[in-house]
């Protein structure tokens, strides 16, 4: 993992880039994403809708990887947590008349509380048991959302006002790209600090971490709370973008989608899932819409990719990138891919 480098040899541009946790190629990618809606095939509204969904999955997978990649606990109820945030936000807007922007943050807070609870009760459990606990939690929350019809209107769906008053998808696209980047940045800052080291120590060997003075209770609960807060804000975005919320969004299969993208992207990298989500989800949407007489084909491809990656390349895309692309001979290209490296 990389730590902050305060090397005097770096010029201002490199230092700013380093603080922003970007490499030159990352910056180029971000600019490309921001320009994408102006490039012809992507400037149609339906394409933009797909791209927004890509962005949503990308941002979710960053938050998911923050838990799965760093403290090695798969939060299997992640979409249910996001759904809680979405419902909280939607209900606050509808019943209390709050602005959707503030309600989104309130959704984040409600999900953080949920994350705090899951984090606390899963403390004694490890690995697959913690995953199961969060899964059951997600099932219970989804059941509640389905059955509390007086509040959530259940499967009939809750209509929510959109964040922007326009019919156009443009502002939503820029918002989700900014959200993806902000979430990545926050997670990366936390991971770069001492806390990141503590997370990895806990993931590898909790007893050893405890002996060296790391308090696993604090770090695990903090990690869970933060990643759930991210999910909550994104759930709020989901609610106020699509304009309709059903308990279906909390379903386990949606979590599986996030999980697949995060793992294909590469666990423990944070950026892998975000990078993979755009081309991958976009292609899946193309398959789904063009081959609509073959329902489920996109998910078959999806599952096959997940299986093949898990068997033959468990490190995912980020591992592939690190081992094969990152170290070219050409120095300019090397700078482009890695940024200025601190001189020892």
């Amino acid at each position: 993992m990389d730590t902050t480098t305060n090397d005097l040899n770096m010029n201002l541009f490199d230092r700013v880039l380093d603080k922003l946790c970007l490499t030159p190629i990352g910056l180029a990618g971000l600019i490309l994403l921001l320009l994408l809606p102006f490039i012809p095939p992507f400037n149609q509204e339906y394409m933009l809708r797909w791209l927004i969904y890509c962005g949503f999955v990308a941002a979710m997978s960053v938050g998911f990887d923050f838990t799965a990649g760093y403290i090695n606990i798969v939060n299997f109820g992640y979409m249910a947590v996001a759904g809680t945030g979405g419902y909280t936000s939607a209900l606050l807007v509808i019943n209390a008349g709050l602005s959707p922007w503030i309600a989104m943050l309130a959704g984040g807070v409600s999900s953080a509380v949920l994350g705090l609870i899951i984090g606390m009760i899963s403390l004694r459990l490890r690995g697959i048991f913690a995953a199961c606990l969060s899964w059951f939690f997600g099932l219970a929350v989804m059941g509640l959302a389905t059955k509390m019809v007086w509040l959530t209107r259940g499967p009939m769906g809750l209509r929510t006002p959109r964040l922007f008053e326009t019919e156009s998808n443009f502002p939503f696209y820029f918002l989700i790209i900014i959200l993806v980047y902000l979430i990545y940045l926050i997670c990366k800052w936390v991971v770069r600090s001492k806390m990141g080291l503590a997370f990895q120590a806990i993931a590898q060997n909790m007893d050893a971490a405890r002996t060296s003075g790391i308090n696993p209770v604090f770090y695990r609960v903090f990690n869970f709370t933060m990643s759930c807060a991210i999910a909550g804000v994104l759930g709020g975005f989901y609610a106020h973008f699509y304009g309709i919320l059903t308990p279906d969004m909390m379903h386990t299969s949606k979590t599986v989608e996030i999980l697949a993208v995060a793992y294909i992207g590469g666990r423990g990298s944070l950026w892998g899932g975000a990078v993979v989500a755009f081309p991958f989800i976009f292609l899946m949407e193309i398959v789904r819409s063009t081959l609509s007489h073959l329902p489920g084909l996109n998910l078959v491809i999806y599952a096959l990719v997940l299986i093949l990656v898990m068997i033959y390349y468990p490190g995912g895309f980020s591992y592939f990138y690190d081992t094969h692309i990152r170290q070219p001979k050409n120095r300019a290209l090397r700078y482009f891919l890695n940024g200025r490296e601190a001189k020892a």
Partner: peptide, 24 residues
């Protein structure tokens, strides 16, 4: 290494695959 988690994710993939093959 990391067998439990990897095999779990693998079965998640198998599950999605079988469900959608049935549908297809």
């Amino acid at each position: 290494d990391n067998w439990v988690m990897n095999s779990f994710l693998l079965t998640v993939g198998v599950s999605v695959l079988l469900v959608n093959l049935h549908q297809l």
